[in-house]
Amino acid sequence: MPLDTSRTEPHPEPAATHETRRRLEHARTTSLTQLHALTENTHTNEQLMSTQTSAIRQTLQDIDTAFARLEAGTYGTCRTCGTSIPEERLEILPYTSYCVTCRHRTTA
């Protein structure tokens, strides 16, 4: 009687998960530093400061969502089409939820 050897796609190995967490923590720290610098600079145009603050807060929210996807085992999978997001893209934007194709569709 043959054993069923089919398996679901494995979760990232601990070393890969550790590296992903490191990238996400770095992105979070950088965003928090930028947010702090913006709030400290009283010479910045109010409209520009508001726009930049909103963008940084969105990035922080994206980072938190990426941590949740990592815990759920769905990190690295496009939320729109379900394909794997290329590792190169995740290295640059570790908090992205979309492959390049789907991201272009949402901004077009």
Rank of each mutant, 00 (worst) to 15 (best):
48 L>F: 12
53 T>D: 02
83 T>D: 14
76 G>N: 10
51 T>P: 00
4 D>E: 07
81 C>S: 13
42 T>S: 13
107 T>A: 14
35 L>E: 06
12 P>Y: 00
56 I>T: 08
75 Y>S: 01
29 T>I: 08
61 Q>E: 10
61 Q>G: 08
8 T>W: 12
64 D>K: 14
89 R>A: 03
77 T>P: 03
26 H>I: 00
95 Y>A: 08
97 S>G: 14
44 T>C: 05
93 L>D: 00
85 I>F: 02
92 I>S: 05
8 T>A: 10
73 G>C: 07
87 E>L: 14
62 D>T: 01
79 R>Q: 08
62 D>W: 01
70 L>M: 07
79 R>M: 02
54 S>K: 15
108 A>M: 00
107 T>P: 00
40 E>C: 11
79 R>V: 06
87 E>C: 02
11 H>P: 11
26 H>V: 01
99 C>F: 03
47 Q>H: 13
13 E>Y: 13
66 A>E: 03
88 E>K: 06
67 F>D: 04
46 E>N: 11
27 A>E: 04
23 R>S: 06
61 Q>T: 13
14 P>D: 04
18 H>K: 15
94 P>D: 02
18 H>L: 10
94 P>M: 10
33 T>Y: 02
35 L>H: 10
98 Y>G: 00
83 T>H: 09
75 Y>A: 00
92 I>E: 01
107 T>I: 11
108 A>Y: 00
24 L>T: 04
83 T>Y: 00
98 Y>N: 09
10 P>Q: 13
67 F>T: 02
17 T>S: 05
22 R>H: 15
50 S>Q: 15
77 T>Y: 06
57 R>F: 11
45 N>C: 00
23 R>N: 08
34 Q>M: 09
61 Q>F: 11
85 I>W: 03
89 R>F: 03
56 I>N: 06
13 E>S: 10
27 A>F: 06
40 E>F: 02
80 T>D: 15
14 P>Y: 13
84 S>G: 11
2 P>D: 13
60 L>S: 09
27 A>N: 07
77 T>R: 04
102 C>N: 07
57 R>D: 09
60 L>R: 00
44 T>W: 03
74 T>I: 10
101 T>K: 09
95 Y>M: 01
105 R>L: 15
81 C>F: 07
32 L>R: 09
57 R>Q: 14
89 R>G: 05
51 T>G: 10
16 A>W: 03
82 G>N: 14
92 I>Y: 06
50 S>Y: 00
37 A>T: 15
53 T>S: 14
97 S>W: 05
87 E>K: 11
79 R>P: 02
86 P>V: 08
90 L>K: 05
13 E>R: 09
92 I>H: 05
42 T>W: 13
54 S>Q: 15
4 D>G: 04
84 S>K: 15
62 D>R: 02
70 L>E: 09
65 T>R: 12
15 A>D: 15
89 R>M: 07
50 S>P: 02
44 T>S: 14
16 A>N: 09
75 Y>V: 04
5 T>A: 14
91 E>F: 02
49 M>H: 09
23 R>A: 13
48 L>W: 14
97 S>A: 09
61 Q>C: 02
6 S>N: 10
67 F>L: 13
33 T>D: 08
95 Y>Q: 15
87 E>A: 15
64 D>N: 14
14 P>N: 08
57 R>M: 10
75 Y>N: 07
90 L>T: 05
42 T>C: 05
19 E>I: 00
64 D>G: 05
96 T>H: 03
79 R>D: 14
47 Q>Y: 06
28 R>N: 04
96 T>N: 04
